[in-house]
Simulated assay, not measured.
Amino acid sequence: MGIKKTLGLGMATAALGLALIGGGTFAYFSDSVETSGTFASGTLDLNAEPTVVINLDNIKPGDYGIRTFKLFNNGTLDIEKVLLRTSYSVTNMAGAPANTDDFGKHIKVMFLTNLDKQEDVIYETTLYELQSLAPDAVDNKWQEWFEERGGLKAGTSDNLIVKFEFVDNNEDQNQFQGDALQLKWTFEARQGTGTAK
Protein backbone atom coordinates (compact mmCIF):
# COMPACT_ATOMS: atom_id res chain seq x y z
CA MET A 1 0.00 0.00 0.00
CA GLY A 2 1.31 3.35 -0.97
CA ILE A 3 1.89 6.25 1.35
CA LYS A 4 -0.95 8.19 -0.23
CA LYS A 5 -3.38 5.36 0.38
CA THR A 6 -2.18 4.93 3.98
CA LEU A 7 -2.54 8.65 4.66
CA GLY A 8 -5.94 8.76 2.99
CA LEU A 9 -7.17 5.74 4.97
CA GLY A 10 -5.82 7.26 8.21
CA MET A 11 -7.64 10.53 7.54
CA ALA A 12 -10.87 8.72 6.73
CA THR A 13 -10.59 6.68 9.92
CA ALA A 14 -9.93 9.84 11.94
CA ALA A 15 -12.90 11.62 10.37
CA LEU A 16 -15.18 8.64 11.11
CA GLY A 17 -13.94 8.58 14.74
CA LEU A 18 -14.59 12.32 15.18
CA ALA A 19 -18.04 11.94 13.67
CA LEU A 20 -18.88 9.13 16.12
CA ILE A 21 -17.53 11.12 19.12
CA GLY A 22 -19.36 14.30 18.04
CA GLY A 23 -22.58 12.44 17.39
CA GLY A 24 -22.44 10.82 20.83
CA THR A 25 -22.42 14.11 22.74
CA PHE A 26 -26.03 14.92 21.80
CA ALA A 27 -27.52 11.83 23.42
CA TYR A 28 -28.16 12.67 27.17
CA PHE A 29 -31.01 13.07 29.70
CA SER A 30 -31.91 16.55 30.97
CA ASP A 31 -34.35 18.27 33.28
CA SER A 32 -34.82 21.81 34.62
CA VAL A 33 -36.76 23.66 37.29
CA GLU A 34 -37.36 27.41 37.83
CA THR A 35 -37.48 29.12 41.21
CA SER A 36 -38.64 32.62 42.15
CA GLY A 37 -38.69 34.91 45.15
CA THR A 38 -40.32 38.14 46.33
CA PHE A 39 -39.13 40.96 48.55
CA ALA A 40 -41.72 43.22 50.18
CA SER A 41 -40.58 45.79 52.72
CA GLY A 42 -42.54 46.59 55.85
CA THR A 43 -43.62 50.02 57.08
CA LEU A 44 -42.94 52.25 60.05
CA ASP A 45 -46.04 54.33 60.81
CA LEU A 46 -45.86 56.30 64.07
CA ASN A 47 -48.80 58.44 65.14
CA ALA A 48 -49.71 60.51 68.19
CA GLU A 49 -53.08 61.30 69.72
CA PRO A 50 -53.76 64.07 70.36
CA THR A 51 -51.27 65.85 68.13
CA VAL A 52 -51.52 69.01 70.26
CA VAL A 53 -49.90 67.93 73.52
CA ILE A 54 -50.54 71.15 75.45
CA ASN A 55 -51.99 74.64 75.08
CA LEU A 56 -51.69 76.92 78.11
CA ASP A 57 -52.95 80.51 77.93
CA ASN A 58 -52.51 83.38 80.39
CA ILE A 59 -49.84 81.58 82.37
CA LYS A 60 -47.77 83.19 85.10
CA PRO A 61 -44.72 81.95 87.03
CA GLY A 62 -45.69 78.91 89.09
CA ASP A 63 -48.48 77.73 86.73
CA TYR A 64 -48.30 74.18 85.38
CA GLY A 65 -50.21 71.75 83.20
CA ILE A 66 -50.39 67.95 83.17
CA ARG A 67 -51.43 66.18 79.97
CA THR A 68 -51.60 62.61 78.65
CA PHE A 69 -51.19 61.42 75.08
CA LYS A 70 -50.58 58.19 73.15
CA LEU A 71 -47.99 57.05 70.65
CA PHE A 72 -49.31 54.48 68.14
CA ASN A 73 -47.39 52.09 65.89
CA ASN A 74 -49.78 51.67 62.96
CA GLY A 75 -47.09 50.12 60.75
CA THR A 76 -46.18 46.52 60.03
CA LEU A 77 -42.69 46.66 61.58
CA ASP A 78 -41.77 46.85 65.26
CA ILE A 79 -40.25 50.17 66.31
CA GLU A 80 -37.12 49.84 68.44
CA LYS A 81 -36.76 53.49 69.44
CA VAL A 82 -38.84 56.65 69.35
CA LEU A 83 -36.52 59.62 69.70
CA LEU A 84 -37.99 62.87 71.00
CA ARG A 85 -36.68 65.97 69.22
CA THR A 86 -37.51 69.39 70.69
CA SER A 87 -37.59 72.80 69.06
CA TYR A 88 -39.44 76.00 69.88
CA SER A 89 -39.74 79.64 68.93
CA VAL A 90 -40.59 82.62 71.11
CA THR A 91 -42.51 85.67 69.97
CA ASN A 92 -42.96 88.88 71.95
CA MET A 93 -46.18 90.82 72.04
CA ALA A 94 -45.87 94.34 70.66
CA GLY A 95 -45.06 96.77 73.44
CA ALA A 96 -43.89 93.98 75.78
CA PRO A 97 -40.65 94.40 77.74
CA ALA A 98 -37.47 93.47 75.88
CA ASN A 99 -36.22 89.99 76.75
CA THR A 100 -32.72 89.44 78.07
CA ASP A 101 -33.25 85.71 78.63
CA ASP A 102 -34.70 82.75 76.71
CA PHE A 103 -38.29 81.98 77.76
CA GLY A 104 -37.58 78.28 77.13
CA LYS A 105 -35.14 78.27 80.06
CA HIS A 106 -38.08 79.02 82.35
CA ILE A 107 -40.48 76.39 81.00
CA LYS A 108 -39.61 73.15 82.73
CA VAL A 109 -40.67 69.64 81.77
CA MET A 110 -41.17 68.30 85.29
CA PHE A 111 -41.59 64.78 83.98
CA LEU A 112 -42.48 62.83 80.86
CA THR A 113 -43.34 59.27 81.82
CA ASN A 114 -44.19 56.28 79.65
CA LEU A 115 -46.99 54.70 81.68
CA ASP A 116 -46.85 51.40 79.76
CA LYS A 117 -43.13 50.95 80.40
CA GLN A 118 -43.21 52.55 83.89
CA GLU A 119 -40.20 54.53 82.71
CA ASP A 120 -39.27 58.21 83.00
CA VAL A 121 -38.40 59.49 79.54
CA ILE A 122 -37.53 62.90 80.95
CA TYR A 123 -37.12 63.78 84.58
CA GLU A 124 -37.00 67.52 85.16
CA THR A 125 -35.30 69.55 82.46
CA THR A 126 -36.06 72.82 80.70
CA LEU A 127 -37.23 73.13 77.12
CA TYR A 128 -33.98 74.98 76.43
CA GLU A 129 -31.87 72.01 77.65
CA LEU A 130 -34.17 69.48 75.98
CA GLN A 131 -33.28 70.91 72.54
CA SER A 132 -29.83 69.29 72.80
CA LEU A 133 -31.19 65.90 73.92
CA ALA A 134 -33.03 63.13 72.08
CA PRO A 135 -34.47 60.79 74.73
CA ASP A 136 -36.11 57.49 73.74
CA ALA A 137 -39.84 57.70 74.55
CA VAL A 138 -40.38 53.91 74.44
CA ASP A 139 -37.27 52.69 76.27
CA ASN A 140 -37.34 50.39 79.29
CA LYS A 141 -33.98 50.59 81.06
CA TRP A 142 -34.98 48.63 84.18
CA GLN A 143 -36.92 45.83 82.51
CA GLU A 144 -38.01 42.99 84.75
CA TRP A 145 -39.08 39.61 83.37
CA PHE A 146 -42.78 40.48 83.82
CA GLU A 147 -42.56 44.02 82.38
CA GLU A 148 -43.01 45.19 78.80
CA ARG A 149 -39.76 45.38 76.87
CA GLY A 150 -38.60 48.59 75.21
CA GLY A 151 -39.76 49.59 71.75
CA LEU A 152 -43.23 49.74 70.26
CA LYS A 153 -44.53 46.60 68.58
CA ALA A 154 -46.57 46.84 65.37
CA GLY A 155 -50.23 47.45 66.15
CA THR A 156 -49.65 48.64 69.74
CA SER A 157 -49.58 51.97 71.59
CA ASP A 158 -47.93 53.51 74.64
CA ASN A 159 -49.56 56.00 77.03
CA LEU A 160 -47.45 58.95 78.15
CA ILE A 161 -48.03 61.67 80.75
CA VAL A 162 -46.19 64.99 80.89
CA LYS A 163 -46.05 67.94 83.26
CA PHE A 164 -44.93 71.41 82.14
CA GLU A 165 -44.31 74.27 84.58
CA PHE A 166 -43.54 77.96 84.16
CA VAL A 167 -40.89 78.09 86.89
CA ASP A 168 -41.19 80.82 89.50
CA ASN A 169 -37.57 81.66 90.26
CA ASN A 170 -38.49 84.25 92.94
CA GLU A 171 -36.92 86.97 90.80
CA ASP A 172 -38.29 89.66 88.51
CA GLN A 173 -39.67 87.84 85.45
CA ASN A 174 -41.53 90.80 83.94
CA GLN A 175 -39.60 90.43 80.69
CA PHE A 176 -41.70 87.35 79.84
CA GLN A 177 -45.05 89.17 80.01
CA GLY A 178 -46.77 88.82 76.66
CA ASP A 179 -44.34 86.16 75.38
CA ALA A 180 -45.65 83.19 73.42
CA LEU A 181 -43.63 80.00 73.09
CA GLN A 182 -44.48 77.68 70.22
CA LEU A 183 -43.27 74.17 71.11
CA LYS A 184 -42.67 71.46 68.52
CA TRP A 185 -42.02 67.91 69.61
CA THR A 186 -41.06 65.52 66.82
CA PHE A 187 -41.21 61.82 67.66
CA GLU A 188 -38.87 59.96 65.30
CA ALA A 189 -39.39 56.20 64.93
CA ARG A 190 -36.34 54.00 64.36
CA GLN A 191 -36.37 50.38 63.21
CA GLY A 192 -34.48 47.63 64.99
CA THR A 193 -31.49 45.76 63.61
CA GLY A 194 -31.98 43.29 60.77
CA THR A 195 -32.86 39.69 61.63
CA ALA A 196 -32.88 36.33 59.84
CA LYS A 197 -36.19 35.73 58.03
Rank of each mutant, 00 (worst) to 15 (best):
1 M>T: 11
4 K>I: 07
5 K>L: 13
15 A>N: 08
18 L>K: 03
19 A>T: 05
19 A>F: 04
21 I>Y: 10
21 I>G: 07
21 I>L: 12
24 G>K: 11
25 T>H: 01
25 T>F: 09
27 A>L: 09
29 F>R: 06
30 S>W: 08
31 D>H: 07
31 D>C: 10
32 S>F: 02
33 V>N: 07
38 T>W: 03
38 T>L: 03
43 T>M: 05
44 L>M: 04
46 L>F: 14
46 L>Q: 07
47 N>L: 08
47 N>T: 08
50 P>C: 12
53 V>D: 15
54 I>F: 11
55 N>V: 15
56 L>W: 04
57 D>N: 06
57 D>Q: 09
60 K>R: 03
64 Y>Q: 14
66 I>E: 07
70 K>G: 12
72 F>N: 10
72 F>C: 04
72 F>R: 09
72 F>K: 02
74 N>S: 08
76 T>H: 00
80 E>Y: 06
81 K>D: 01
82 V>W: 06
86 T>E: 04
88 Y>N: 05
91 T>Y: 03
95 G>D: 07
97 P>G: 00
103 F>N: 01
108 K>L: 06
112 L>D: 06
115 L>G: 10
116 D>G: 15
122 I>R: 13
123 Y>G: 09
123 Y>E: 14
123 Y>P: 10
128 Y>W: 01
130 L>N: 01
130 L>R: 04
130 L>E: 03
134 A>M: 06
136 D>Y: 01
137 A>P: 10
141 K>F: 01
142 W>C: 00
142 W>N: 00
146 F>A: 13
149 R>D: 13
151 G>P: 05
151 G>M: 04
152 L>D: 02
152 L>S: 02
154 A>P: 14
159 N>R: 13
160 L>H: 05
162 V>D: 12
166 F>H: 11
168 D>R: 10
170 N>P: 02
170 N>V: 02
171 E>Y: 05
178 G>Y: 01
178 G>V: 00
180 A>I: 04
185 W>F: 15
186 T>D: 14
187 F>W: 14
192 G>N: 00
194 G>V: 15
196 A>P: 02
197 K>M: 11
